[in-house]
Amino acid sequence: MKPMPMTTRLALLGAIPFIFSALLLSLDILNLPVLGSVANLLGSYTLVIAVFMCGVHWGQYLQQAGDRASNLLIISNVLTVLLWIVWLIVPIDIFLMLALTVFLILLYIDMRLRMGGIISKNYFRTRLLVTTVVCACLLLSIYAI
């Protein structure tokens, strides 16, 4: 059996805070000593990861040789700014629902990149798995909040 690539391991590890937060919220544990509100911890981590994934698309845009899809550059910027503004002004449950939608949009973009041969089959499988876990955890968390 081949060892799991580092990108897959890091992506799976990155899902742990989503799982942990969903579990805590489901158990009606709303605050943690020192760290504070579980919902706010989840929201801030969600913002960081979503913006990071938008940044990954920037990197993919920059790595494309020749005919670049400039909409990838624009979409990643729009999603980043949109999420940040929403984080600042709406209740946490609405933010998490919008972030969930953004994760699905980013997965759709990755599906298109995979179909275009820009990203590998293994990377897309990892993205599909982790996005599924993250979205399920976000739904559970939204329900628990």
Rank of each mutant, 00 (worst) to 15 (best):
V48Y: 02
M6H: 13
L104M: 03
Q63H: 15
P17A: 07
V48S: 09
A144R: 04
V102L: 11
T132M: 13
I118A: 05
M4E: 15
G59P: 06
V102R: 01
W84R: 06
V51Q: 07
V81N: 14
Q64E: 13
V48K: 09
I92N: 10
I94Q: 13
F52K: 15
R114E: 06
I119M: 07
L98P: 00
W58A: 10
N40D: 13
I49P: 10
C137G: 02
I119N: 06
I118V: 06
V48G: 08
D93E: 15
K121T: 13
L88M: 08
A22H: 09
P5H: 02
L32I: 04
R112T: 07
P33V: 08
M1E: 12
V134R: 01
L98A: 12
T132Q: 11
G55H: 14
C137A: 02
L13K: 09
A15S: 12
I119F: 05
P3S: 14
V38G: 01
L42V: 01
S76Y: 08
T80M: 09
L25M: 09
S44I: 11
R114C: 14
I142P: 00
N31K: 14
L106D: 12
P33G: 14
L62Q: 00
Y61V: 00
V56G: 08
Q63G: 15
G66K: 12
A11C: 13
A69P: 00
L13R: 04
L41T: 00
G36F: 07
A99E: 03
I85H: 02
F20V: 10
T131S: 10
T80D: 01
T7Y: 15
I74A: 14
L10Q: 14
A144V: 02
A11R: 07
L27T: 02
L27E: 10
H57R: 07
I105F: 15
Q60D: 05
G117V: 01
L107P: 10
D67R: 14
N77A: 11
L100H: 00
I29P: 06
P17R: 01
M4H: 14
A11W: 03
M53H: 10
I75W: 03
T46L: 04
V81P: 07
A39F: 04
I92L: 13
I74F: 12
C137W: 02
F95Y: 03
L98V: 07
M6V: 14
A50N: 11
C135P: 01
T126I: 09
Y123P: 10
Y123R: 03
L83H: 09
G36R: 09
L82G: 08
I94A: 13
L41G: 05
L35E: 14
S44F: 05
Q63V: 15
F95I: 00
A11D: 06
L62S: 04
A99F: 09
I19N: 10
C135I: 08
